[in-house]
Amino acid sequence: MRFSVLGSGSRGNSVYIESGATGILIDNGFSGKELEKRLLSIGRSLDNITAICLTHEHNDHVAGAGVISRRCKVPVHANPGTFEGAEKRLGKLYQRADFATGDELSIDDLQVRSFRISHDTLDPVGYVVSDGTKHFGYCTDTGKVSKLMELRLARCHGLVLEFNHDPEMLKNGPYPLMLKQRVRSSHGHLANEEAGEFLGSLVHNSLRVAVLAHLSETNNTPNFAMAAALPHMPADHPARLLAAEQDKATDLFQL
């Protein structure tokens, strides 16, 4: 199984995961042209997309999902709350595929299980994706960590976790008070230290790649996020640790 974070942040999010002949996107907040460019940068194309799975209805996660569904003739999987919230942004889909939060989906060579997270949307989820041997976990846009999240992500070989903001940068930054309160709330976004502790609870000997994602361009830096994560990784652990970028894709990692 392989994956790449095609871009992560408030201006667009998408992750590509593949096994065998199956390739799925978790979210797509990019235009069709931009998504195609990022896929080409990792040696893939729109032809590799089998399905799209949505986490929640915010524009930076769904803006380009409808376009890709229609253009590539692929289904979009989401729970009813996300479809309700994203209906106007998605437009007409090639195929709408509803699931209940917590369901496990079979998408050709991949099994995809959703789990509940905490964000200010109708029914936000994270995902664990498996090919039967390896497991990949995706959890961003959550204001708090739960035992359920830890349970679902515990044995993943690859992780993408939210490291959204540095509390001092947020406190002293340009956001209006109401937005600062939203980000800090239990339905907002994880701060670096909270995220670092969460990562530490998920580290095991078979973890191969951990990507710090959804960094705020206004209230965080890659150096701050990495500084919060590193103390929770054993010094001799073989996993690769890196911060995703907004403007370009990561490598295509093999788990």
Rank of each mutant, 00 (worst) to 15 (best):
D251P: 00
V203R: 04
P124V: 10
E104D: 00
F83I: 06
S4R: 06
S10E: 12
R208L: 09
K248C: 11
R184C: 09
T142E: 09
V203G: 04
R44A: 07
G9E: 06
L122G: 03
R38Y: 09
S10I: 14
E194T: 15
S186K: 09
N223F: 06
G126P: 02
G9C: 06
T140Y: 02
N79P: 07
L202C: 11
N172L: 11
K88S: 13
G81Q: 05
A243M: 06
A63H: 03
G158T: 10
T101N: 14
L39A: 03
I68A: 09
N48E: 08
C139K: 11
L177R: 10
V203M: 03
L39F: 08
T250S: 15
H165S: 09
Y138D: 03
P80H: 10
G43T: 10
T101Q: 14
L153C: 01
L199G: 08
D60T: 02
K92S: 15
L170Y: 12
H189Y: 15
A65F: 03
Y127S: 02
S216C: 14
V112I: 13
S185P: 08
L242Q: 10
L6R: 00
A191D: 15
F136H: 08
V128S: 01
G173Y: 14
Y138G: 01
P238E: 12
Y138L: 12
N13F: 06
E34R: 12
V128P: 09
L105S: 10
L207K: 01
R89L: 14
H232Y: 15
E104Y: 03
S118Y: 14
I117E: 06
G137I: 04
L110Q: 01
R44K: 15
T140G: 03
I49F: 10
G12H: 10
G81A: 05
L35M: 05
S118A: 12
L122C: 00
G66D: 07
S41G: 00
L35N: 12
L202G: 00
H189T: 05
P124W: 04
E34A: 15
F163M: 11
I17P: 02
A97S: 14
E34N: 14
T140E: 02
S114D: 10
A51F: 07
L179M: 15
K248M: 08
R11P: 01
M178K: 09
L252S: 02
R96Y: 01
N79A: 06
T140L: 03
R116C: 11
H232Q: 11
N13W: 02
S45M: 07
L122V: 07
L93W: 03
I26T: 00
H56W: 14
H232P: 05
R240T: 12
G102T: 02
Q181F: 07
M226E: 11
R89K: 12
T218W: 13
H204F: 07
R240L: 13
R71C: 00
F253E: 09
T55M: 09
F99D: 06
